[in-house]
Design a protein around this nucleic acid. Structure first.
Lengths: 270, 270
DNA sequence: ACTTATCTGTACGATAACGTACATAAAACG
DNA sequence: CGTTTTATGTACGTTATCGTACAGATAAGT
């Protein structure tokens, strides 16, 4: 068996991979590999940030927990992102809680180091790290906006599709370890609602699952059952973060056609 | 009558007012006073940003319009904020549309000037403008998160209260010019839903209204009918932006008690 | 003053999602 | 192996919100 340390390198995180070599070299000795077991909390809402986290294999959920205990995921972060943007945005703590949703690993960096490097000026423009982090934050902003609109207008079925797809994008295979209960708490709905929605998808042959394991069988059809929110967010991430540090412009990648939602009939394809 | 130009000065916008004198002096000649009539669109989703806007009296709504035409406000911006954060975040266009919700005026600044000043390094740390803008963006992020969670879990009645309060905070008086139709499109609900919710509030004596004009009569009780979201966002804005440029820490201002929401009985006070 | 446009009130069936309760099934554990 | 825990399925009444339709009321326009 290959030693586990060989399986992990910082540039499995897309942001770390996109850094120019000189900055990465400077950062490297400060990067600390950590494992992120499912359920662990990287930081609580309101607590002081000690580190920023760059997931490589793990998926972390930013969720807001309301006073009555109800919760809702407002964004997900995987290998494409970083946790703790508030650190360099000037608030020293995050407004939400960060919980590991899919176990894996990642790298972390001390808050102080991150802040200093973020504020380091590179020539007449600011540093590439700052540039990258701000672009990521902008993408995160889009993700949150879309979540807000999605929560307002789209059905649980559509949101489940959206969630499955964006989770899939952060995973190496088409199988995920995930209970319906957990998905329900992400989407902020009842567990029974997920049972039903997932049942529909399974009957239609889009996914299959067994006690905590979901396998996506037909990604294309899953996309056509999801609301527009999935592709809007994905396209924005590509637009902002695909050209790694360059200045050339990307046109919007592609645009999914409208599918089905609250207002129209749905489940027709299920 | 006092000439209208006397009524408008840049520092009616809190961000402009919080700038250190030297930066403000440099910025001043580039600030352009504009009027923002209701319904005008400062920018469309996806369009290139030509300016950033600092409202003084106007209130602007960031709303996401879905493919089927349904819309939802994801954040509001008034004299406490700025429009066009994407500009310095690295995306050159916004993901949402910015519509003037309450007529008024504001100042704008050419995109190029803003970007250059944003990236100007001040000593070993970056400029105060950058610092301020990032803190504001962080507050905006909180607002969006909260909107997402609120859309998921809170009733129309609660959301109306929340919306009225946050609008009130951006106005000089306790009266606003606003139709139910318009509020409905902000909250992303039916107009009839607002008629009912507003009727409840009026019957309870918290507000009074007549064809497009709403007057808040009892702010305190209105707060106790709103969901926690209102105070969470307000406190975060204070925390991040009240100590203008200083480094001292604010504790959370105050914390409203839980009130009523979907899960509990509501309308009891109405 | 009269007409027209716009805004507000009300009603009613439809429906998505909820809360609750309990049954079955599949893992985990001893 | 059997027992316990955990995950999933199902059912049923309740509720918030929707969609639609239309009536009355207030402001604006001519």
């Amino acid at each position: 068996m290959i030693p586990i340390t060989m399986l992990h390198t910082p540039n499995q995180n897309h942001l770390l991979a996109a850094l120019p070599p000189d900055i990465f070299q400077r950062m490297y000795p400060h990067l600390e590999l950590i494992s992120m077991p499912r359920g662990s909390v990287l930081y609580e809402s309101g607590s002081q940030l000690q580190h920023v986290y760059f997931p490589t294999a793990a998926i972390v959920s930013l969720q807001y927990v309301m006073e009555n205990g109800a919760s809702a995921e407002i964004a997900g972060v995987g290998k494409e992102g970083v946790l703790g943007v508030s650190l360099f945005m000037g608030g020293s703590n995050m407004p939400s809680r960060a919980t590991v949703q899919t176990a894996g690993s990642g790298y972390r960096l001390k808050a102080r180091w991150m802040i200093e490097e973020f504020n380091r000026a590179g020539g007449r423009r600011n540093g590439a790290l700052q540039n990258l982090m701000l672009r990521y934050t902008q993408a995160l902003l889009t993700q949150m906006s879309q979540t807000a609109a999605c929560n307002r207008h789209h059905s649980v079925d559509q949101q489940l599709c959206r969630w499955l797809l964006s989770t899939l994008d952060r995973l190496p295979s088409n199988e995920m370890t995930m209970t319906q209960e957990l998905i329900a708490s992400m989407l902020g709905v009842r567990r029974e609602g997920i049972t039903e929605a997932a049942g529909n998808l399974q009957r239609a042959g889009l996914i299959s699952y067994r006690r905590g394991h979901i396998t996506v069988l037909d990604r294309t059809r899953l996309e056509s059952c999801a609301c527009e929110c999935y592709s809007v967010v994905r396209n924005e991430f590509h637009r902002l973060l695909d050209d790694t540090g360059g200045t050339k412009h990307h046109p919007p990648q592609r645009k999914n056609l409208p599918l089905r939602n609250h207002s129209e009939q749905h489940k027709s394809a299920l």
